[in-house]
Computed example of a mutant assay.
Amino acid sequence: MTSELLDRALVEEATKKSGLIWVQGGVSALDGDAQGAPARALWHVWHEGAACVVGDGPGEQPLPGLVDGGDAVVTVRSKDKGGRIVAWTAKVVETAPGSPEWEGAVAELKGKRLNAPDGDEMPERWRRECRVLRLEPQGTTAPLPSDSQAARPVPTPATTRRPIPAALPRLLRRKRR
């Protein structure tokens, strides 16, 4: 019983303090037997005993593999060093828009959402176009893996690398003189 309480406290404290969690949906157990999507980094808030996330709408984070009633594995990293602290299984619960659970989670999420294009209209957009999920801890924590678990990045149309403009080297040389 004491071990279970310590695990629960570790999950809560680590998840509260981390601004980013890695979530893999469609996972049947902590051994990594995944039928779903690869793990994704998600921003979240800890609210009433669960990690709450919003996504799957225009301009919001994707939530592939996270289905209502399904399982997920959540890996929490250290906010300062970025290393893994704890991994735990979660039950995915989709909150109904307008319900007290949804309203409470959205109030917390709204305060943490960075660079929102619509400010005060954001909760209404989330109600229409997004899903708000609770990742509720189940059972105990898992031992952390000994390998790096590095994986190829998920394909995306976003890019930061483009060819430099042809005139840029000349412009930079001119400024040095």
Rank of each mutant, 00 (worst) to 15 (best):
H47K: 11
V76P: 09
P100A: 05
I85F: 00
L10I: 06
A50H: 09
W88R: 01
E94V: 10
V53S: 01
V67Q: 02
K16F: 04
G26A: 08
D31N: 13
P38C: 07
E94R: 14
V67D: 10
E60Q: 15
A72R: 01
L66C: 03
E12Q: 10
Q35E: 11
L30V: 13
L63M: 14
A51G: 11
D56W: 00
K81L: 15
G36M: 02
E94Y: 00
I85Y: 05
G98L: 06
G82P: 12
G36R: 06
G59F: 04
A50I: 11
G19N: 10
V93Q: 06
T95L: 09
P97Q: 04
G65N: 04
T95C: 02
H44D: 03
H44K: 13
V11N: 03
D68M: 02
G57C: 01
A14V: 02
P97C: 04
D56I: 06
D7K: 06
P97N: 01
K17N: 10
Q24E: 13
A50C: 12
V76C: 14
R8K: 12
T89C: 12
A14Q: 07
K79C: 01
P100S: 05
V67N: 08
G19D: 12
K91R: 14
E13F: 05
D68C: 08
Q35W: 08
D31C: 04
V27D: 00
V86F: 05
G98C: 06
V27E: 02
H44T: 01
V11T: 14
A50W: 07
S78H: 04
V92L: 12
G32C: 09
A72S: 09
V67E: 10
G69N: 07
P38Q: 10
V93E: 09
T75E: 08
L66K: 13
A96G: 07
A14S: 15
A41K: 00
A34Q: 11
P97T: 12
D71V: 02
G98V: 06
Q61V: 09
R84T: 11
G26C: 08
A41Q: 07
V11S: 03
A9C: 03
L63Y: 03
H47E: 13
T89L: 07
D31A: 11
G59M: 02
V74M: 04
R8F: 12
D31S: 14
V92S: 02
A41L: 14
L63T: 06
E13W: 07
G98F: 08
W43T: 15
L63N: 02
E48V: 05
Q35V: 14
G98K: 11
S18N: 02
V11Q: 15
V11E: 02
A39Y: 00
V67I: 08
A34D: 00
S18C: 10
G55K: 04
P100E: 07
V45Y: 03
G98A: 08
V45K: 05
K17I: 04
A41M: 14
S28A: 09
L42W: 10
V67K: 11
A9N: 12
R8D: 13
A72K: 09
A29M: 01
T75L: 10
G19C: 04
G26E: 04
L20N: 06
A90R: 07
A90V: 11
D7M: 00
W22V: 00
G55Y: 00
E48Q: 15
G65A: 09
I85N: 03
I21W: 06
V45N: 03
Q61C: 08
P97I: 13
D71I: 06
S28Q: 13
P58G: 06
